[in-house]
Structure formats: structure tokens, C-alpha cells
């Protein structure tokens, strides 16, 4: 299926676009892409080496394209896409470990397109990514939602079906666990 470039329509809801896609409109998928590429890209970029970010992002959208026909709308499309992104990131690390490459490769893997970034910062980024990957899933999730996707705590609470106090508590525990990982 070919996806054509165009300016996304902000008025049409995701649900309507999905229905249009199911009826054969590739333009509808194009609009979904434009609407969600930033959040997918930011999430992937937070946890995957820089040189692999675009590839993993592409994998997410290709998987979405293939399985969107079976999307039933039980959850919001953004939530579904977030789950798909997490699966693709996990798959990336699974394939990587199968090839017996280090979970996060050394600096040369991360340099590339990072203009203006110092090697020290890149080194620290890899170190933090590695520490993040060691955290329990719900800790990683709250950190990614707040930092990578820049969602507010009330939005995160709604998404996680929690009250805001529980979400802030989870956030604090996640940061404490990350600090412990980084200090090791």
C-alpha cells in the first residue's frame, strides 16, 4: 500500500480515519502517520540507539499498517500504537541479543546524526538507556510518558487508570529505582 504525503486533517478523529483506512483509503493511514509519528519517534528515540531509531519507527508503522484491519477500537489508537511500539522495541533488543551484540552497543553506534552532541553526553545517554531498560515495565512506562512523550501527570493517570496521587507515587518510585540503577 502506498502512502502519499499530505497535510493531515486535524478535524477527523482517529476512529474515523481507521474506518476510512479499513474501507481502502491509504490517505487515511497517511494522516494517522502524520498525527502520531512524533510520539512514536520520541518514545523509540528514548530507548533505542540513535542509529536504529528510524528503522524501529518504520517497523512500528509497517506493523500498524498490516494489523490495523484487525483493530477493534477497544482501546484508543494512540494506546494501541504505544503497545505496538513497546513490542517493536522489545523485538529489536531480542534480535540484537540473538545476534550476540551488546544490548546497547558502544559509542560509534550512537554517534551519526547527533549534531552538536558531545561524546560525553552520548556516553551518558547510552548509560541511562541501559539503566532504564533494567527497570520494571510500569516504571519505564511512567518515565517515558512524562519525559519522552511529555504528557502531564493527570493525562498519565487517566491513561493508566489510576488516580493522580498513585501516578505521582509511581513516578517517584520509578525515579528512585532509576537512580539506584545509575548509581550501581
Amino acid at each position: 500500500m502506498d502512502i502519499h504525503t499530505s497535510i493531515p486533517s486535524q478535524e477527523t478523529s482517529d476512529e474515523v480515519l481507521i474506518q476510512q483506512f479499513k474501507s481502502g483509503s491509504s490517505e487515511a493511514f497517511n494522516q494517522l502517520y502524520h498525527r502520531h509519528i512524533n510520539s512514536v519517534y520520541k518514545r523509540v528515540r528514548y530507548v533505542v540507539p540513535e542509529s536504529e531509531v528510524e528503522d524501529v519507527t518504520q517497523e512500528v508503522f509497517i506493523a500498524a499498517l498490516k494489523s490495523l484491519h484487525s483493530f477493534r477500537g477497544d482501546a484508543q489508537f494512540s494506546t494501541w500504537l504505544r503497545t505496538l511500539t513497546n513490542h517493536k522495541v522489545a523485538e529489536f533488543y531480542r534480535k540484537r541479543s540473538r545476534k550476540q551484540e551488546p544490548p546497547l552497543s558502544p559509542l560509534e553506534d550512537a554517534f551519526g546524526q547527533m549534531e552538536g552532541s558531545t561524546s560525553r553526553m552520548m556516553e551518558e545517554r547510552i548509560y541511562i538507556q541501559k539503566a532504564l531498560s533494567q527497570l520494571p515495565e510500569n516504571y519505564q512506562e511512567v518515565i517515558l510518558l512524562r519525559f519522552a512523550e511529555a504528557l502531564q501527570f493527570n493525562e498519565i493517570a487517566e491513561m493508566m487508570n489510576q488516580n493522580i496521587e498513585a501516578t505521582k507515587s509511581l513516578f517517584r518510585r520509578a525515579i528512585a529505582a532509576l537512580k539506584t540503577q545509575l548509581d550501581q
Binding site: 502512502i3 504525503t5 497517511n30 502524520h34 512524533n38 528514548y46 541511562i128 519525559f147 519522552a148 532509576l178
Partner: peptide, 22 residues
């Protein structure tokens, strides 16, 4: 985290290039 981790959004031109490659 704020200082080191990337948070910048994609520019419109980069989005289009990525879409073309996709």
C-alpha cells in the same frame, strides 16, 4: 534525564523524508 535524553520533536521536513523512506 532532562539534560541528557532527547526530547525534541521532528521537523516537518524530516517527517516528510521519513515518510518517503517508509
Amino acid at each position: 534525564l532532562r539534560r541528557v535524553m532527547p526530547t525534541s520533536a521532528l521537523e516537518e521536513s524530516t517527517k516528510k523524508q521519513m515518510l518517503a523512506r517508509l
